[in-house]
Design a protein around this nucleic acid. Structure first.
Lengths: 245, 245
DNA sequence: CGAGTGATTGATATCGTTCAAAGCTCGTGG
DNA sequence: CCACGAGCTTTGAACGATATCAATCACTCG
């Protein structure tokens, strides 16, 4: 009765309510498949600044529902490099790797939709579209990492900061209206920087002071306004793009 | 007759002769499966310094049989960052991406075992072990890229050079005797640097001069000997490791 | 033998870091 | 509602590491 009688099968209630359902990995699953995956899922919440998984320890498989997460790698003497900045709908963890290659830490209060490994792997094994989505995700992450290698290896401080702002702006521009072209940033766009200057520095391979100075320089040049430490208005996208090279 | 009569089915002749057969992706395939993949394969040779694929253009799918290949990404003004250094047995190209995300260029004369895309995809689709190996490869590349982000973002010049030498030494130590523990480097180990100082610089995010100076500093400290621009003897692995942090 | 490329070395310049000191923000509690 | 304080951010000054500019040297290939 449950299956055959349902005319338009519905997704699990918790998925129907999910804020990131349409953009997360699970968007490729049919309602029936969602039920299967959902039975392995469990929501968890973390306060800001909490470590979710530590480099080298068993991984977590999860969608980020709300909040911001960073992944970072550390040197013995404490220096840290942020290797990834994760937003709601992003996926955390490698399905094909037992242990984490980086430490994941919350930046703000975070809600995760975590998946029990064996149930997750069942879904991966039996659904090629899901497997494909997972693969695409890995390839996209590799792309991003290499793009960041170019930034870290070749760009000067000002270019790094400008590039960071542009990528953040592009990322945020597709949050809202889906009928607008993605990734387009226009003059006057408001930008919320989700991380501290220290975290920006650890992401850009710079010091806090340099990040602050380069932001100040962009402000002085009229390219951006700093409405607060975390809020930026982009006055001139073209010039910001030129700064970022 | 051909199939059923063969008691221990043999791999295709060209694969039997292949120098990298045991370490390349195709090592997970059975002889029968190898025949299938091999029918989509074709060897190609390139002289040193030749561009194999350009960033943004259609990809190549290939195993490197002999020679060294670098993948690099460039900025508009000509600055370049090498994002990957590929050795014989390494795989070049993303099966799940039509276009290349980086330019691939030969460093020495190179032989590739290239695969026609549709035939390759058929094998990927029908053989889960092969698909799995491909996925593992992507994950390993992501790992390497992030490790390099840590180097580019946080290490000082001397640490970068020392780290490069250690990773190269580890990589070369597993080329020979397979009964020795992998990745172990011992004092007195000889090292062949497969790339120029300029390419090292582009890989490490430094200038040629700095690379040369830091190598000189390691030599002056007695940690290594420079027997030629491309040949290094590691006198003191422990100290080299300490320099690399 | 000579030319050209790659490597080393030296002198100087520059960018980003380091060290130091205020100045803001925002959450907390009175 | 305001005052307080911790942590974050900005700014300044000096230093230092690496880049830049320049010259020489070494090796390979015509």
């Amino acid at each position: 009765m449950t299956d055959a009688a349902r005319p338009a099968p519905a997704a699990p209630p918790s998925c129907m309510r999910c804020a990131v359902r349409s953009r997360a990995l699970c968007s490729v699953l049919s309602p029936d498949e969602l039920w299967e995956l959902n039975s392995a899922a469990r929501h968890k919440t973390y306060p800001a600044g909490q470590t979710i998984v530590t480099q080298g320890e068993p991984n977590v498989l999860a969608n980020i529902v709300t909040g911001i997460v960073v992944e970072k790698k550390g040197l013995a003497d404490g220096r840290e490099q942020i290797v990834s900045l994760l937003f709601p709908s992003d996926f955390l963890g490698n399905a094909y790797r037992r242990d984490a290659d980086a430490t994941a830490q919350t930046v703000s209060p975070v809600t995760l939709c975590t998946f029990e490994r064996s149930g997750f792997e069942d879904v991966v094994r039996s659904h090629s579209a899901f497997r494909q989505a997972l693969f695409d995700h890995a390839v996209a992450e590799l792309d991003q990492a290499r793009e960041w290698m170019l930034l870290l290896g070749q760009m000067r401080a000002g270019e790094r900061v400008a590039t960071f702002l542009m990528r953040l702006a592009r990322r945020q521009s597709d949050a809202g209206c889906s009928h607008m072209p993605r990734d387009v940033v226009s003059d006057g766009a408001m930008l919320r920087i989700p991380i501290t200057r220290g975290q920006m520095a650890a992401f850009l391979g710079l010091t806090v002071e340099t990040v602050s100075r380069k932001l100040g320089a962009l402000r002085d040049a009229g390219v951006i306004d700093l409405l607060g430490p975390r809020t930026v208005r982009i006055n001139n996208v073209e010039r910001l793009l030129a700064e970022s090279l």
